[in-house]
């Protein structure tokens, strides 16, 4: 097993096999349950088309996945430092790049668990058969780069700001701003400022991709632009995190 895979395995086990990690999954599940129950308990929301419900669910799952990735990312370097376990990690015969790949693997595992957890909710919201597969593919193609971008951003911030609290706060502010299209109505996003924000915001590109495929029935293959933007942001965040991890002094 490579050092990166070993680090990823430890990180994934931390999430999936520890009570603390499972508490996270329980909270994610509770959030998705609350949203689903809101849909059936409100007459107004209960009349939403299934496609609109699925679109809203995909946005919510991506936001929750990004939130979990931010927490993991902020903890990846700054948390190790605060616990006193950073030094043993840095003196181990493992490159900084491998450490980052391992931490990234842990975030990817957490996102995978979140997406798997969301599948029953997507089914309950009305997606089944091909619709459920398409929703899963959307989470994989557009959701994954967005979620990992925020995880890497938090990792880079944690390496530079040195404390979990500072890194978490900074990354959460960016995530909140980026995920604001979830809350803003389409009207507000049609202004010049809104369109410019949508153009550069990776979260907006993921949401617009969900909208085009799920609500407007556009083919997945037509999402090249959205995919290109979110992958470009992922590459930038990877560089930022790698530079931060390389700068970390023993």
């Amino acid at each position: 097993m490579t050092p990166a895979a070993l680090v990823a395995r430890i990180e994934a086990r931390e999430l999936l096999a520890s009570p603390r990690g499972r508490l996270w999954l329980l909270l994610l599940s509770a959030a998705l349950s609350a949203f689903a129950l809101l849909l059936v308990s409100s007459t107004e929301l209960g009349l939403l088309d299934r496609a609109q419900v699925l679109y809203a669910q995909l946005g919510l799952v991506t936001a929750l996945g990004a939130l979990l990735a931010v927490v993991q990312g902020a903890d990846a370097v700054a948390g190790e430092r605060e616990r006193g376990s950073l030094l043993p990690l840095l003196v181990a015969p493992v490159s900084r790049g491998a450490i980052l790949r391992g931490k990234l693997g842990g975030q990817a595992a957490a996102w995978g668990a979140t997406a798997l957890l969301a599948l029953p909710y997507l089914w309950a919201g009305g997606a089944s058969g091909a619709g459920l597969l398409r929703a899963g593919a959307l989470l994989l193609l557009l959701g994954t780069p967005v979620v990992l971008t925020f995880g890497l951003l938090a990792t880079g911030l944690g390496a530079r700001l040195r404390t979990v609290r500072a890194a978490l706060l900074a990354a959460l502010v960016v995530l909140l701003l980026s995920a604001s299209p979830l809350l803003l109505g389409p009207g507000l996003r049609q202004t010049a400022a809104g369109r410019a924000f949508d153009l550069v915001n990776p979260f907006s590109h993921a949401l617009n991709g969900f909208d085009e495929v799920v609500v407007d029935s556009a083919p997945l293959a037509a999402q090249v632009v959205h995919l290109g933007v979110v992958v470009a942001w992922f590459a930038l965040a990877l560089r930022y995190a790698l530079a931060g991890v390389r700068k970390v002094a023993r």
């Binding site: 009570p19 499972r22 508490l23 999954l25 329980l26 599940s29 509770a30 998705l32 349950s33 609350a34 689903a36 129950l37 849909l39 059936v40 209960g46 009349l47 939403l48 088309d49 299934r50 419900v53 957890l117 029953p120 909710y121 089914w123 309950a124 919201g125 009305g126």
Partner: peptide, 24 residues
């Protein structure tokens, strides 16, 4: 119109957190 059905939502919304809680 195909809308959200409570008979699909309620078992998942209540059952899944219950299962996760039971795993503790």
């Amino acid at each position: 119109r195909p809308v959200v059905e409570s008979r699909r939502v309620v078992p998942v919304a209540l059952g899944l957190p219950g299962l996760l809680a039971a795993s503790f």
